[in-house]
């Protein structure tokens, strides 16, 4: 699974430009699904048919990054952020374009917290003309993907958000053995406001919707208002500002986790949101919750996860698919 995670992370695809990551995931799930298709908005949907409950699992394929909006006379590249970029982390980092052009994200003042409008990319071009040969308006850049092992089972890099969820779904589809009608959705454009999961949910009309995504941790992100620890198991989301999980579903998820001896934590996230918020109200509506993978330093270039939590999240995903 480590190789798969790494492969998914090293395939840059920002919101609205998920073509490359979609191809990788498609090849991964194709042998295990009854049908695999891409909808109008670009969501990749893999189905394992069954006569039981219709369950939609959803992880988003897109990542945060930048769109090129212009090229200055000095060859500097103007950019606009896609999704909630952490400017503090992104500034003075290596970046890479969809076509492999390398550069750094810079700002004219290194003394204060950078503002989005002041950020630009320097690809080493001396003139506008030179830059225009390499980069076009509308191209995307991302902070260079990274994947490194640290002590214990901890890994650091980007974008764990949400390639780790994608990897778990790719793995789960190989392991499930269920009568339920299972949809594994790899959604687009989550980072710009959970846009892709809306049409996917409408078309599928699931009974139950479960998103897989990362969540913040208390001890490292310094938010004492939540109670999630890295390495203490996957989480079952009770609430975040975008969604209140179905209490019946949460109860069932806990029961299954306990029966299967899966390590889980209860999660109430004081900020952010996931595709679950949209799955709950799109179409006819669904009972939803989220299996989260604790991650410190989300949306920076050094998101950190504990592989132990990932294993628990995978076990819970498979158990829910089989037993819900």
């Amino acid at each position: 699974m480590i190789d798969l995670i790494k492969k998914l992370m090293l395939t840059p695809s920002v919101s609205g430009r998920e073509e490359k990551i979609r191809e990788v995931i498609k090849n991964e799930v194709l042998p295990y699904a009854d049908e695999v298709y891409t909808d109008n908005m670009g969501n990749l949907i893999a189905r394992k048919k069954g006569n039981g409950k219709k369950i939609m699992f959803c992880a988003h394929m897109d990542e945060i990054g930048f769109f090129v909006t212009g090229i200055g006379s000095n060859g500097n590249i103007n950019v606009s952020p896609v999704g909630g970029i952490n400017a503090l982390s992104a500034t003075f980092q290596d970046v890479i374009s969809e076509n492999g052009v390398c550069g750094i994200l810079a700002t004219n003042s290194s003394k204060e917290l950078p503002k989005y409008e002041k950020l630009y990319i320097d690809i080493g071009a001396k003139t506008k003309k030179q830059a225009e040969k390499k980069v076009q308006i509308g191209d995307f850049f991302v902070c260079v993907p990274k994947f490194k092992k640290l002590l214990n089972q901890r890994y650091v890099g980007r974008p764990f958000d949400d390639r780790i969820g994608c990897a778990i779904l790719c793995e789960a589809i190989k392991q499930v053995n269920s009568d339920n009608d299972l949809y594994f959705v790899f959604s687009v454009q989550e980072e710009v406001g959970s846009r892709g999961s809306k049409p996917a949910t409408f078309a599928i009309a699931p009974d139950i919707g479960i998103a897989l995504d990362v969540t913040a941790t208390a001890e490292k992100d310094g938010d004492s208002s939540m109670d999630v620890k890295l390495g203490a198991g996957c989480t079952i989301k009770i609430k975040d500002p975008s969604v209140i999980s179905s209490p019946e579903l949460v109860k069932e998820m806990r029961k299954i986790a306990e029966n299967e001896k899966i390590k889980y934590q209860n999660e109430i996230l004081p900020f952010g949101g996931t595709d679950a918020s949209v799955m709950q109200i799109a179409g006819k509506g669904a009972r939803v919750s989220v299996i989260s993978i604790p991650s410190s330093f989300i949306h920076t270039s050094c998101e950190m996860i504990d592989m132990g939590d990932v294993k628990e999240a995978l076990k819970l995903t498979v158990a829910l698919a089989n037993k819900l």
Binding site: D39, M41, N43
Partner: peptide
């Protein structure tokens, strides 16, 4: 030409996501 700044929004934001979604 294309837009050289990201601003504004219009009906497309609903049309894109509505029903089964649209290109």
């Amino acid at each position: 030409q294309t837009n050289r700044y990201i601003s504004g929004g219009n009906d497309s934001m609903h049309i894109q996501k509505n029903a089964e979604g649209a290109r």
